[in-house]
Design a protein around this nucleic acid. Sequence first.
DNA 1: CTTGCAACATGACAATAGTCAAGTTGAAGC
DNA 2: GCTTCAACTTGACTATTGTCATGTTGCAAG
Lengths: 230, 230
Amino acid sequence: MAHEAQKAIARQSLLLKSLPDQHVDTLLSHAIWRSYDRGETIFLQEEEAKAVHVVLAGWVKLFRMSPTGAEAVVSVFTRGESFGEAVALRNVPYPVSAEAVSACEVMHIPSPLLLSLMKEDPEIGVSILASTFTHLHSLVAQLEQLKAQTGAQRVAEFLLNLCDAKPDGCDVELPYDKMLIAGRLGMKPESLSRAFSRLKTVGVQINRNHAVISDIERLRDYAESDPSDK
Amino acid sequence: MAHEAQKAIARQSLLLKSLPDQHVDTLLSHAIWRSYDRGETIFLQEEEAKAVHVVLAGWVKLFRMSPTGAEAVVSVFTRGESFGEAVALRNVPYPVSAEAVSACEVMHIPSPLLLSLMKEDPEIGVSILASTFTHLHSLVAQLEQLKAQTGAQRVAEFLLNLCDAKPDGCDVELPYDKMLIAGRLGMKPESLSRAFSRLKTVGVQINRNHAVISDIERLRDYAESDPSDK
DNA sequence: CTTGCAACATGACAATAGTCAAGTTGAAGC
DNA sequence: GCTTCAACTTGACTATTGTCATGTTGCAAG
């Protein structure tokens, strides 16, 4: 069953962290805990949602297949992040598919349980809205990036997010393979390669899945500069 | 104050239509009713959300300004549609700005009222999640379009949505001006013009803000065909 | 160790979209 | 009615990205 370490991660997730301990215990004890291999499907687009999912370890991608078979990556989640909240509570089909992109551990909270707890304590609804809002926000940010930035600039932002609040000069590991990064940023792997070489001119070195950023501010300027004057 | 006609529209909105009449009456009687001129700001990005907004007439756009000043249109709402749900209940700043793109009527439901009603009846939380999910879904669809379709194909889908379920051969009015359509579809006005002329070859005629689609199925095929084999 | 494969890089080319500039047109204001 | 302006269209050009082909590399199965 579930290890204590996993439960600890689940408790820190955005979905659960603001809930009273009592409810969290109920949810954790009724949750389903599962491992997935790399490449395994967690659920498919159009399938009916029966649970909310919390990633405890590894990486999960949400993606959509267009009628032509092209795949558009919508988001990528890792430890402590949850998805499927808004869908699970409405008994509607998933708008996306979910797949493990590395070996991973996922906790599934059955939606009927969540619904019944919600009737007792409206605070749960607020918690769910909180994580749903976070997703909404990140989709909006992605839309802005796609519409207003070039490929290389999106890659720059992606790298900046990886080194987050670190001070100056920065080494980061790329969290998943370049094909997935390309999908997440809405470009082909070849374009990602070229974007990386372009970023060499603003002090970024890529070696395998390791990136060295010599000057974070310079990279930030590049990401936020007007695409037309470069 | 509010006309009965406006209240009737509000009752039919996705946000309110599944709520018990009693709650709806409470909400309507405490709501703020306002008119906006074309171009007027409804709220600004980073402002703190104090209400949920329901459009009763006219058109409203949500957009984001990137640091460089480029504007990315996130969505466009009209009669019966609501926005700001997830944000209002969390006391967080709006991730987008809202502006009237035509003269319009908007109802504002103060969020504290919604929160207190939600504590009495969790059904309200479900209703809010319902409309939030709708937005989430439409953002996901937009992302897929941007990542997997060419400009002309996005325009084709936009036209198809306008004539919705009508049978065969179809006249539609473009709901707002072409600059806004271009923004909504993530392209420049010039590119929209060219996309329209390209669609002539699949039986679409554009005249001012009026579009004639001679064969809906042909347009659908075009929109869903692989961009690489055309 | 070797074979085979998938990820990744790079070059050449085509398609697509953005930029800049020059027109046209239609509607609002005078 | 005329003026003016912004929306829109079109053309020429450029930049960016996708496509296809080729080659390298590193890892894992045998």
